[in-house]
Design a protein around this nucleic acid. Sequence first.
DNA 1: GGTCAGTGTTACCGGCGGTAACACCGACGA
DNA 2: TCGTCGGTGTTACCGCCGGTAACACTGACC
Lengths: 197, 197
Amino acid sequence: MTEALALPDRSARRAALLDAADRVVAREGLAASMASVAAEAGVSKPILYRHFGDKGGLTAALAERHTARLWEVLRAALGTSGTPRDRVEATVGAYLAAIEAQPQLYRFLTAREDEPEQVRGFTHGLAALLTRGIALELGVAPGPREQVWARGIVGMVQATGDWWLGTDPRGADGLAREELARHLTDLLFGAYGAATR
Amino acid sequence: MTEALALPDRSARRAALLDAADRVVAREGLAASMASVAAEAGVSKPILYRHFGDKGGLTAALAERHTARLWEVLRAALGTSGTPRDRVEATVGAYLAAIEAQPQLYRFLTAREDEPEQVRGFTHGLAALLTRGIALELGVAPGPREQVWARGIVGMVQATGDWWLGTDPRGADGLAREELARHLTDLLFGAYGAATR
DNA sequence: GGTCAGTGTTACCGGCGGTAACACCGACGA
DNA sequence: TCGTCGGTGTTACCGCCGGTAACACTGACC
């Protein structure tokens, strides 16, 4: 009974809280605290905790909200016509474009998610998606090899992306996004091995 | 009360403090705090801070102490006779063996090193080492491509290693170290691209 | 009109990284 | 013999964090 009234209200509030979290994360990045999110939303902390449980819950909710859009972009990139290499390069480039557009958000989402087997997690979801994608492209069932490859590729792109965001675009090591994507794709397609042969 | 310590000079004290830090990190991992390190060493916090400046300084000192040994191991692995692929697999395996032997330590050292351009850093050092190694193996001067590849490989191995340490060795996704190293080496040598062709 | 669930608040907790302020002690010049 | 002075140690604190207990208000329902 009361739920019929509470539910729409709750979901609207939740959206408003997430809006506030978005703004704070965009402004403060990794340093975004629960207190600042609450202040930004014009409410007090316990409201935040009643909605999301703890900070991990807020992070997960934030991730869900943004990954939907990222999934679409990545899926589109994976659907690129051309060689498998083209598809990988497009996908890597799309991911890099996403983190370049909202660097603070992605730094926040990929920040060391503390040990307690947080099944939900941005990186975890990304790896799971990629595991399926790889298995599909290879035409096999997902196994340990696909899992390892997916984790590895995600780690590789995240690590280089993180480093890249910290470099001066105009500095000596300034690198265009396309060039970074090309180097990474080369690596994934055995350019290192080929060069040493 | 505090008796003792036949006038240890600064470097001896420093070594004792690092010994204590080693023990605490091995025991508490990421949760290791400055207070516990001080307690373990039987001194008070300000002593720690006078020696290392801040927590980043302690971490850097800990890293220097252990990376020397790791560098040797990796260099030995890179000197393996055989194909380039053999060398890469041996190197990846050596790194995985190191983090398997002291998981808590490596989790601590690779934990998100906060933004403030901490030039010293375990991951940074590793990437720099690998950049030179790759350039050497390719017979070229280190450039953007080598930097990207090094960062990428380090990120890839760290990410998978981290994930692997968290899996149950006896579980369904239990994976032997050698198998993980082999999958990663396959990936680096273009097995994914080859399989999709 | 009294009860009661839900929504909101304030004010607190323990723990963190980091530091100010003070106590002690041996060396040394008068 | 005394006084000062620098180095080494301590205690006790700061501000901030994530998280919560305890209480105030409000409005629907018997």
